[in-house]
Design a protein around this nucleic acid. Structure first.
Lengths: 151, 151
DNA sequence: TTTAATCCTTCCAATCATGGGAAGGTCAAG
DNA sequence: CTTGACCTTCCCATGATTGGAAGGATTAAA
């Protein structure tokens, strides 16, 4: 199977398959004489695993750990669980951050007439020199809205 | 006031102030003979406005729009409200995405013993060839977890 | 006054996961 | 043998931000 078929079958783009190979997340494949990468059903299975982990928001680094645990028949399930729960913690922190933003904005927008007049509480709040200090300090590791999968 | 003091006073790092200038979000400042950037209280006020908008998760592009509306005494509040509500929509979509991930993972983790044995429903689910097709398709524009402010 | 510390400047690189596209080789069908 | 659909590698862009190097300016202390 060529890379395009593997991409089709796994839901991981050919670009990303090459990228995952380049960073060592997946091993280098066999090549044809012409240099084409060749994939087996087993490879596709691994790629699907990766795709699903990615869909759950795991970082590539975490996915690497998950893949190696997956392939380790001696693994301890607590190691897997630890990765999952750590990720849940991160997700929940992020959710809280976004919820805070959304609720602040919703509140401000509710008080904005939204007509042709210039008066606007949203701008007033943004311009308010006293505001914006007290609430949640932004997450040290992860940002607001990231660029994305776009599949 | 030099850039360091402006950074201190506004909560926007010197690095970011230069960056905002380079992309045209803020105008080029006056310079001293030696080439040092000079900032007024008014500039700091603008920087604080920007920082607060950024804390609410607005993109630099949206912030540019907000700043120009802010400085336009003839603005219509509906234009501001539209930007805010569009952003809320995005935030809420993102929140839903993350919640879905978190709840899936929480559910899986709850069924994982988390001991030294290898059996693990989390890995089973990731490896499950039938799964992962039916739920929310990832947001076309924004990704999972982004890199961040880290202030 | 010399020196050291602390600023400032510009420029370049890295982050993270992903896509876009160019330039060129390969393969199968017509 | 040509055409089109693949594949290859390589470089670039994204967004917001930080880091750092190399070098000049300013300031405070010795």
């Amino acid at each position: 199977m060529n890379i395009g078929q593997a991409a089709q079958a796994s839901g991981v783009s050919a670009k990303m398959i090459r990228y995952y190979e380049s960073i060592g997340l997946i091993p280098k494949t066999v090549r044809t004489e012409a240099g084409y990468r060749v994939y087996s059903d087993h490879d596709v299975h691994t790629l699907r695993f990766i795709r699903r982990a990615r869909d759950l928001g795991f970082s590539v680094e975490q996915i690497a750990d998950l893949v190696s645990l997956w392939q380790d028949r001696e693994r301890a399930s607590k190691d897997v669980k630890a990765i999952a729960l750590e990720h849940v913690t991160l997700l929940e922190r992020k959710i809280r951050e976004l919820q805070e933003m959304a609720s602040t904005l919703t509140h401000l927008a509710r008080n904005c007439h939204g007509d042709t007049r210039p008066h606007c509480p949203i701008l007033e709040e943004l311009a308010n020199d006293e505001a914006g200090q007290g609430h949640v300090k932004p997450d040290a590791k992860f940002g607001v809205l990231g660029k994305a999968p776009a599949r």
